[in-house]
Design a protein around this nucleic acid. Sequence first.
DNA 1: CAGATTTCGTTCAAACTTCAACCAACAACC
DNA 2: GGTTGTTGGTTGAAGTTTGAACGAAATCTG
Lengths: 152, 152
Amino acid sequence: MTTGTRWLDSEQQVAWRAYLLGTARLMAKLDDDLRQFGLGINDYEILVRLSEAPERRLRMAELADRLHQSRSRLTHTVGRLEAAELVRRTSCKSDKRGVWAELTEAGFSLLDHAAPYHVEGVRENLVNLASPEDFAAVGRVFDAVSEHIGQR
Amino acid sequence: MTTGTRWLDSEQQVAWRAYLLGTARLMAKLDDDLRQFGLGINDYEILVRLSEAPERRLRMAELADRLHQSRSRLTHTVGRLEAAELVRRTSCKSDKRGVWAELTEAGFSLLDHAAPYHVEGVRENLVNLASPEDFAAVGRVFDAVSEHIGQR
DNA sequence: CAGATTTCGTTCAAACTTCAACCAACAACC
DNA sequence: GGTTGTTGGTTGAAGTTTGAACGAAATCTG
């Protein structure tokens, strides 16, 4: 290592590593816990977004943006969810290129079962471990990150 | 959604989502930035851990633990890094099951070039966006998460 | 010390993600 | 109204990750 670089100081370094490791462990844990419902955290998030949307449906592109995923990835994932009958695709009248991804009754019902369990996992492995102030700080920081990096 | 579940309150909800989206965007960005060196963030972290270890080498299992990866995944990744001559495998004398992953000169040199650039990315897209207090809070929170979830 | 158990790392196949290429529909422009 | 460019979404192949199964070496137990 040579000149001129502003390295992270030791506190920052430690925090950065903690974030990397903690995130890896947390995601793995949440993923694991969802497996009993046949879902990964990625599938779960898709279902949640749909469940919250008007008429429980969203355009593919919109959904991809909200999750920061490539359209391609979403196409594949929704394809799987559709095969599992958790999601249905319908084509969009007003823009004939468009496709709605819509939560099915079965999808909603599965989410209904999985959600309490999942939320409990988020609490137990994250929220409850932090003071409200610290957790709020996490929110602020990653909000700023999102904001800064912006859309793809 | 029915009864008895302690949902996240709206603040917590917002913070949780910000974390998910922010992390997705941040990782994608850092990954992108490293691509010019032919590395992903995962490869990068492996090289860093090796570079810091005594004799610039670590046992596979130890490395996997530090990164919270499955051994299988690490085997594959190190296989690729070895093909790229950034890492070398040598077998362990004292435990004949064991394998050392060791950073090559080329690996060290690549890291040397990539690191300043990467660190700058971490600063610009994360560290500089947060107050020192907030960033410290992130460290505390994810340290607690790591601690709580523990080894796989 | 034999046998049972655990640990280390790899392998294979299946599952998932990425990337580039692509087609169709919309939009702009002249 | 025909270019030209952009956006929405899919495809297929290549690359990566997962998960179960495995063999070999270490460790534990009686």
